[in-house]
Amino acid sequence: MPSKNAKPRLAVWKFASCDGCQLSLLDCEDELLAVAQAVEIAYFPEAVRSALSGRYDLSLVEGSITTPEDAERIREVRRRSRYLVTIGACATAGGIQALRNFADVAEYAAVVYARPDYIRTLATSTPIADHVPVDFELRGCPINKRQLVEVISAFLAGRRPAVPPHAVCIECKRNGNVCVMVAHGTPCLGPVTHTGCAALCPSYNRGCYGCYGPKETPNAPSLSRWLAALGMDARALQRLYRTFNANAAPFREESERHGA
């Protein structure tokens, strides 16, 4: 029997988020107990009551940085972690809450809270990589749990995760879907969006809405011309790029070219 300390130590951290990406780990019903055999789940407050202690071999970080305390806390997480992997659109691109980056956060607080003076928040929501070095970014809103298992396995084995960076279109073709944009004129972000979801939306007769964020080297201006030809106006185009990955540079820059 190896001693308990011989197992790699895994930690799961939460910043501004919906908890959905860390839930993906608990949603690995078939693998969870096996993962728990292979690693020591040393810090995972959503699932286990345990104290923060020592260093962690692999830290999975969910959520974006939106408060001064969290900007400090992520540095502490980095110091304690051998590898730091971000999970999901919030940690990787700032999440839906990065819509504040295009607005006035004081006005936002006044809309939601009776006493905005009780709220401490930053003017922006930013990804983890804006604050500390990140070893790998896993995309998606939410992440794909199969890819999460691959990422954990890869880091335990000391290799790079096999997570392809190409467009949703490639996976969509491979699935044999009829193109919703060509055949039905449905606006679709598939050509510029990072794969990982198994081309889910087109499989359900709807256009991709970009929840995995930009693929490598996307050509968003070209896609926007096609979408405009389908009848999308400037406001609708801007909204299309400004959802769960609004702060990812290719989507942000493209959204700034449109709008009212």
């Binding site: 839906i96 504040r100 607080a109 809309v111 939601v112 909204r239 959802t243």
Partner: peptide, 20 residues
């Protein structure tokens, strides 16, 4: 930390509310 959903829902299309 607050995320301000009710603030950024303003200006969105009614069709977007379920996903957002």
């Amino acid at each position: 930390p607050p995320r301000f959903f009710e603030a950024f829902l303003r200006g969105r299309a009614f069709t977007e509310a379920p996903d957002i």
